[in-house]
Design a protein around this nucleic acid. Structure first.
Lengths: 139, 139
DNA sequence: TGACTTAACTTGCATTTCACAAGTGACCGT
DNA sequence: ACGGTCACTTGTGAAATGCAAGTTAAGTCA
């Protein structure tokens, strides 16, 4: 999705221009749910994203202000990808996606406890994830 | 997005396999926010979706159980597209997308009142839209 | 120091999807 | 019967995707 041109002034369209493809939200998911920070971690997270596509998505997300990339101080080969505030604000969307999938996917892998937690305390789950991600930011 | 094969058992991935592209959620938006029901209404809703893509998306959404298509009784040329329960359950995601766009898009078209309503009474907004859509179903 | 490995890309290429324009066929009003 | 409308379908070039292989810079070990 090489940085889409603006299609309209609709906020939903704006959002989809940035994260509306089959891969981008999976990268965000890896960061939010599994704490992924590295290229290799995104690469090996199950769905099998191609390296060129991953590279492209990370760059677009960085250009879109959703994440930031820095070089690992202890190992110059490695990059560290971290969500910005704008990126962290995507957490509610991610939770809703998970909730919808959990409800409507007959073969869902979401444990029933987690589904119930989201159902009963959505705000709490969001706050928790948000706090985790923000603490990483100042690490 | 010709009906993606299942990439993993992740609920988010499941969701993205169905609605994770640049157009599908805009079709849903038209149905939820503007009450669109017709091919021509989706076509003329601002972003300029191509007819072949729209046709494909509607078919995929129908196959995915997110909407249903029926022939207009008064005019055999026209189709009526209506969201199923599964489709209506996407409303929270849509609201979150709108909220995120409204917050992070510097040129957002979302009126500040609506943004505040979502911020203060998300559940209320969702319930209202849901009720509207459900009443259409038994029309 | 030099060979080897690892991390993060980049390149090439065949396949798929997309955008755009044009065409088709069922159906309607007159 | 005829022109117009609605919902598609087809054709075509451009762009994105998936896959395999290659590249570059940096770290590791002998």
């Amino acid at each position: 999705m090489p940085l889409q041109h603006r299609r309209s002034d609709c906020p939903i369209s704006y959002c989809l221009d940035l994260v509306g493809d089959r891969w981008t939200m999976l990268v965000i998911r890896d960061m939010v749910m599994f704490g992924s920070k590295r290229f290799s971690e995104f690469q090996s997270s199950g769905e099998g994203i191609a390296t060129n596509v991953l590279s492209d998505r990370l760059q677009c997300l960085a250009e879109g202000g959703i994440l930031e990339c820095s070089v690992d101080r202890d190992d110059g080969r490695k990059r560290i990808y971290r969500l910005t505030e704008k990126g962290i604000d995507l957490v509610p969307i991610l939770i809703d996606l998970a909730q919808w999938g959990g409800r409507h996917d007959p073969n869902t892998a979401v444990p029933i406890e987690f589904r119930k937690r989201i159902e009963n305390d959505r705000e709490g789950v969001i706050a928790e994830l948000r706090a985790q991600l923000e603490s990483l930011g100042h690490g």
